[in-house]
Design a protein around this nucleic acid. Structure first.
Lengths: 218, 218
DNA sequence: AGAAGATTGTTCCAGACGGTACATTGTGTA
DNA sequence: TACACAATGTACCGTCTGGAACAATCTTCT
């Protein structure tokens, strides 16, 4: 019994349900993000898995169940990453600037998630009906902006009528579009805006736009 | 031969290929916008048509051919509508404001088109490869903004470094997101921003943001 | 009228697809 | 060890789907 082989896990050497589920979810996420709910093929998912078709239906019920699980885990993962950002103590303009830049980079770094959200919107959000635990995470996102706005207004640098929700909406819009609509935009207007340098400029540009949009003027 | 029955058309009374094509395209557009390329069913399309499955393949080759035709016509239709807007002679700030508001309304009024674009982005714009005649229409969109920006800079009300392309990108981002991501946004943050009145405010808010973003400050 | 090509109807199919039945093996517990 | 249940392998199925074959009918041109 060398514990170099079997780690701290009390699990056996042959069956590992959690690992199987995780394996399936990882592959399924990629396939759904690539081809959508109807476009993804269970067979194709299974082939890239160490598991079998049998197990997919065993653990997730049906195709939609698998899709829902993928979506839910995707949201959880993303929100968790977001919580890494700490803006406490920064002056409001600086905080907003950082938040925009962070969101921009964050979206850019997670195109698979963006695709899943776009796909779910095509389905009119039908599959998010009962994802109850998202509420807290979303509230956190808004609260961050509420703090920034409150401070900004108090210090007299933000317009007194800025809406944290609208501001969040605007940040999301810009950052989401940059990833989600990259392809059609490129086909229509060229790749000009999507080189690494151009993206840096773009990021600065939208950060500025959003900051100027909330700034109070004498 | 009463010409109350047959209009000016020199066509016969029984065969009308153009009408058949148009009929198929209309229904196909709705189905593709609703379910995506892989999700749409040819049978379902045909059932809502006065025509038959046979004709779909006769005129459009295969499913992808039909999809491509739908996409192309959708773009053509939209751009044509856009050309109705006339901003000549307006002061630049006013012109930009109007353009943003017009785009906002325009996108909102054409959710089917927005969905098609979102779907095509999921496919990485693969099906727009040879839609050559879009180039002109797109250039027109940019040229409008170039004029506005040039005037604005000349009059000293716009920053001298504004980029018409980036400005267009920003306008598109906001207006597209409002329609495309409505569902997931609603699930996450409530319907608050999507009542008719709230949309009015939102429209004003993004118009202001974008205008302030280009404004030159002393 | 009649040939030639365009348009349409009917019927069928080969494969793919999501999902299931049945049997077997692993595993924690008494 | 023996039981009960969870996890897995294998093989199979009914249906749906995009598409094709074959044949008939319109329409135009000579």
């Amino acid at each position: 019994m060398k514990d170099t082989d079997q780690q701290v896990r009390s699990r056996s050497w042959k069956q590992d349900p959690e690992a199987v589920k995780a394996d399936i979810l990882t592959v399924a996420r990629e396939e759904f993000a690539e081809h959508g709910l109807s476009g993804a093929r269970i067979q194709q998912i299974v082939e890239r898995t160490k598991s079998s078709k049998r197990m997919v239906f065993y653990y997730f019920g049906d195709k939609e169940g698998l899709y829902r699980a993928v979506l839910e885990e995707a949201y959880r993962g993303i929100r968790w990453q977001e919580s890494e950002l700490d803006l406490d103590g920064l002056p409001p303009v600086e905080a907003l600037l950082r938040l925009v830049e962070f969101t921009f980079d964050h979206h850019r770094a997670n195109p698979e998630f963006i695709r899943l959200v776009a796909i779910e919107n095509i389905h009119r959000g039908r599959h998010m009906a009962d994802m109850s635990d998202l509420a807290d995470l979303n509230r956190a996102a808004i609260e961050t902006l509420e703090t920034i706005c409150a401070t900004g207004i108090a210090e007299g640098v933000f317009r007194p009528d800025v809406s944290p929700l609208i501001l969040h909406w605007q940040i999301s819009a810009m950052c989401f579009f940059n990833v989600a609509n990259r392809h059609t935009f490129t086909r229509n207007f060229g790749t000009e805006l999507f080189s690494d340098e151009a993206q840096k400029d773009l990021r600065a540009s939208i950060a500025r736009t959003l900051v100027e949009g909330v700034r109070l003027r004498p």
